[in-house]
């Protein structure tokens, strides 16, 4: 008997209730599609879809609400954790998560993320790090690697002119309000499965009322890395994950 497998391992839209059955606008090989699905799978597995309130960022994932089948609000660029704080404080029984890119979280919203983390807000943050501003045309992000070419670092990121790539997770991990910090990637099937476990864990921390949890996902942006999706996934393994090491940084 041939039978469909359930949940994660088959067509996402047919099985994941939290994910709408629509095609998304992301470029070929972009990691957002995978990360959206992992979040939705975790939400379905915990059966919390009807309690979730998501805060979407400004960036490529700004219209994530077109793909997610639960309550979503937009936020101004970088203010995502402040908006999530407001929601979670008045609705502590809802599950509140933010979905943020590297520009949103690590540049314009640095104050908001650090203070939401430091207050120990019981929210989950999914931080997508692809090292560029995708929506605006591939400018340098705070996480852009040294030497990486972007539309504002055409000769490659110069540490002298542009400063250093920001390891925001390592900064956040020292804060006592932060309870779970893990960095994962979505460049291969195995890494995707690890990412899935990390995202599930981060939601579990919130469900259990443990406090602030954040998962950084190293993701591909083939378009603005000027690569094929396969080259981009190799770049994560060979370059990006060397500078931003994968694994659990803090768990308590």
């Amino acid at each position: 008997m041939i039978q469909k497998k359930d949940t994660a391992l088959k067509n996402a839209e047919a099985s994941v209730k939290s994910l709408r059955a629509v095609e998304h606008h992301y470029c070929a090989g972009c990691g957002h599609g995978i990360i959206h699905r992992l979040i939705c799978e975790a939400i379905d597995e915990y059966g919390i879809r009807d309690r979730v309130i998501a805060v979407a960022p400004v960036g490529c994932a700004v219209i994530a609400y077109e793909y997610w089948n639960f309550d979503v609000t937009e936020a101004a660029h970088g203010r995502t954790p402040a908006v999530a704080t407001g929601i979670k404080r008045v609705r502590p029984n809802n599950i509140v998560f933010t979905y943020q890119g590297d520009g949103d979280l690590a540049a314009i919203g640095t104050a908001e993320i650090i203070h939401a983390a430091n207050r120990g807000e019981n929210i989950t943050v999914i931080f997508v790090n692809n090292g560029v501003y995708g929506m605006t045309g591939g400018q340098m992000a705070p996480t852009t690697l040294a030497g990486q070419k972007t539309s504002t670092t055409m000769e490659g990121r110069s540490l002298r002119r542009d400063g250093y790539p920001l390891k925001i997770l390592e900064m956040l991990a020292v804060l006592p309000g932060v309870k779970y910090v893990e960095r994962v990637a979505v460049n291969s099937s195995h890494e995707v499965l690890r990412a899935k476990r990390a995202i599930s864990k981060a939601f579990k921390m919130q469900i259990d009322g443990k406090g602030f949890s954040i998962v950084e996902v190293l993701s591909m942006c083939p378009t603005y890395w000027g690569m094929t999706p396969i080259q981009a996934s190799d770049r994560i393994k060979n370059d990006v994950a060397i500078f931003y090491p994968l694994g659990v940084i803090k768990s308590c």
């Binding site: 469909k4 497998k5 088959k10 067509n11 996402a12 047919a14 957002h32 699905r37 099937s189 195995h190």
Partner: peptide, 21 residues
């Protein structure tokens, strides 16, 4: 073998895996 690695990585949810149970 139905390992589903293809479906896991597909960013567009374009792959369905069927296997014998």
């Amino acid at each position: 073998t139905g390992c589903a690695m293809c479906a896991v990585i597909c960013p567009d949810g374009a792959i369905e895996v069927y296997r014998d149970i």
